[in-house]
Each structure stands twice: as C-alpha cells, then as structure tokens.
Design a protein around this nucleic acid. Sequence first.
DNA 1: CAGTGGTCTAGACCACTGG
DNA 2: CAGTGGTCTAGACCACTGG
Lengths: 237, 237
Amino acid sequence: MENLLYKRIQTDIKSQIIAGIYREGDLLPSENDFCQLYSVTRSTIRQSLNALVSEGYIDKRKGKGSVVLQQTRRTLGLLTVKGFSEVVGDNKQPVNTVIIDKPALSAWEENFFYHINEWEKKAGCISLKRLRCVGDDPVMLETTYLSNMNLPGFCKRPFINGSLFETLNRQYHVEITKVEQDLRAVLANNEDAGFLKVEVGAPLLHIYLKFYTSREHLFIYSSLLCNTGKYSIGNKL
Amino acid sequence: MENLLYKRIQTDIKSQIIAGIYREGDLLPSENDFCQLYSVTRSTIRQSLNALVSEGYIDKRKGKGSVVLQQTRRTLGLLTVKGFSEVVGDNKQPVNTVIIDKPALSAWEENFFYHINEWEKKAGCISLKRLRCVGDDPVMLETTYLSNMNLPGFCKRPFINGSLFETLNRQYHVEITKVEQDLRAVLANNEDAGFLKVEVGAPLLHIYLKFYTSREHLFIYSSLLCNTGKYSIGNKL
DNA sequence: CAGTGGTCTAGACCACTGG
DNA sequence: CAGTGGTCTAGACCACTGG
C-alpha cells in the first residue's frame, strides 16, 4: 500500500467521493476536522486536499470549505475524456449513442494506426464502434480499441452510464493519465457517409486518439470521424 | 505590487529565468539557499518553486535540485502555443513562415467569428496573415487578430525569433492563460487552395482559436486552415 | 559522503464567507 | 460572529543524487 501519510489520506477521501459518501456539491469536513480525524497536522491534510484539487475531485473556496465536484468534469480537459456531450458545440439538445458494434475480442488489425507493443499484441484487441448523435443528427462515428489487459467481463457487461471511461475507472480502477491527438481533414467515403448521413465527398474531421492509462501496457485508441457541418468540436484548456 | 511573500519570490525568480540569468538546463540555487537569500522559511520557498513547476518554468529532481526548462516547452500544451514546428507531425524538415500580410491596425471585421467586447472594439484590431511551410510545402494558413490593448510599436518591429507569443511575453509581459479551440472540416475555396497549393474542394482542417491572456481585455484570435494531406496536426496533453 | 528535495509536526495570524 | 481556507514561521527526519 501507500506508505506516505498524505497519499493514504488522499486516496481515502477520493474513494469516499467515488463511492458517493461525499456527493457532488457537498462540503467536505473542514481541514481542521480532517486533522483530528486522521491525527495529522494541517499541512499534511492540505497536501492531500491540494492533490485532490489538481486531480479535479474538489474545489476549495476560501472562508467556506472544499466542495465536491461533478464526477464528469474530472480528468483531462480533452475530447471524449469529458464525454461527448460536453464537446459538441450545442448543449440544448439531448445526446444519444447508438452502438453499431458491441465490444468484442479479436486480433489487432494489420497496419494499425498506432504502434502496438508485444504485451498489447498478446493480450488481444477489444474493439467497439459507436455512433454519437445530437438529437436525431448523427455527428460522430467512433471506433475504439483497447488491449484486453486484465479486464474480466468487459465485453459482457454494459457500460456504467454508457461511459467507457467511467466503467474503466469504477470497475477496473483504470485512470487516464495522458492523451495524444492527431487531426486530419478527409472526404467522406461510402460507408462513413451512410452512417453520418452526409454526401460522399463531404469534408469530415478525422481524429486519432491515444490514451495512456494508470495500468501498465493498457492504452486506449480511438478513431473519430466527425461531421462538423452543423456542430463544431470545441475544446477548452 | 504583489503583497504575498511567495508570489513576490515566484515572480522574482521567473523574471530571472525569462531574462536569461538562469538558463535552460541550469540548476537553480537550492531551497535552503533561497531561504537565506530571501530570509523566509523553506515552506514559503517551496510554495514559490511549486508554482513555477506548474507554470512549466522549472522541474524539480529529488536529491538534485530544480532544473530550468526550455522556454518553448512552457505554457499550455496546445497548438501554436508551442510553436508551429512542434505541432506538425514531422520534425526532420525545416519550418518556414511566409508573411502574407504584415501586422496592421484596422477596424474589427463585421460578423467576427468570436464575440468582441466594447474595450476590444475601441482599441481597434491588429491583424496579420502568415503561411506556415514544412520545407517547400505550404501546410497552414494562419490569420491572427488581437486588440491594440496598449501594445506600442507592435506593428513596427519584427517578432522575436519570429514568434508572436515570445514577443508578447518578453516585450509586453503578456502571458497566455487559457485557450479555446473550435474544430471543423471544410472544403478549400479558390483563395485558400492557391495559398496551400491544393485543389479547390480538397478537405482542410479549420481551427478557430481564442487565447486568453494575463492582460485585461486582451484576447488573441486565430483562424487556421490546415492541409493535413501530408502532415497531420499533433497534440499531446 | 554532504547536499538535495519530499514529508511531516506544531504552532500563528489573516481575509473572507455566511448566518 | 465563529469557522473557513491561505499564508508563514521554525523546526525535524528521510530517501535520493552524485562525487
């Protein structure tokens, strides 16, 4: 286990947030309360809480206390990590996801768009294909690939709240640590045009993503094809 | 001025890094040295140094010291903030910039792609247009707009190292604090196709950027048109 | 080995939030 | 007004780096 005081306290409080013991909008116990609770000084508690701030779990307000943040606002400020709905430049309409290919285990494609290491090859590839819609408009065609790196039952159970990242986080304790993006503009081919309801030859935004995780040798790859005609793809940093 | 001890020390050390008194790769004085130098305790110095770590100026190595980082690696991990050359997915070929329209003061365009506030309108708009090339290949057509918010001599002098951001930072002490991106795929029109040497109707990546700065009411807007046929646009977070 | 940054204790004073 | 987080002092012990 962790042998540092502040790390132990940090993961302890984090677990309680994830478990829902402290809920979104709640005030955490004050720093002085925590001092008594864990029998440590305020500096140590402050180290734990500040780490939780930079991880995005809480926000501190002077004179008031530490507020528990929305779970979806966590992690990196990037495409799809935040969830599809926050990325599309319209938040009035409901967002729907249509699963085209359910998660299934197979071999990795030849000439995969990123380099795959030996461990990933041995573990095999789980892939799934989803169509993201705003109202009735199909907007994004997403194919996701990840290695089957000790993820029992992954293909059998549905995602928590329909979210891949939430499922990985809660069910398998996997967190995203880093992201690489690769952007291109392309013309729609026959198949993509069909899914996205655009004409063949329409311009599409093509994004390759590689997510690094807290689990060794587990990476997540996504290929996103976006129809940006009606909705653009936003991104704040 | 700043009235917090650790803030004053932080900006003091930062200035010395920017001024080149501490250079890239140098070890800063140790935390204990700084304690004596500024007559404060180590906690205060550590607060200053940790702030500089998260601003990307230095890196701390246990048992060794604080290392001054490369100036270009600073600021946000995003497009063009890093400089064009780091963004394009090829670092073997030399990168060139052709200035199409030099910086010049004018009125803001009607129907500008972002909302402009009253202060920006009053100050007037400085705009410039540049073509970014890898070797001889034109890759990115960039039009930049900023309000003339107390930037004397901006249109007359050339940029430091050809970089807008470096010039703003060193000459005017303006730093980028936040970025918003908006991505689209479009088809090349006549004019853009000419500059980028592609056929009319070729797919282009269109990026709108809004940079927030440390100076009140000063924002920087960029419109980027990218030919991603040969070079894709990369992005690490 | 001396020197470094990382962790932790035990205090103090302050400006700010909200009743 | 009592309680909060932000800043700051003055110490201590540790694991790690590099000669």
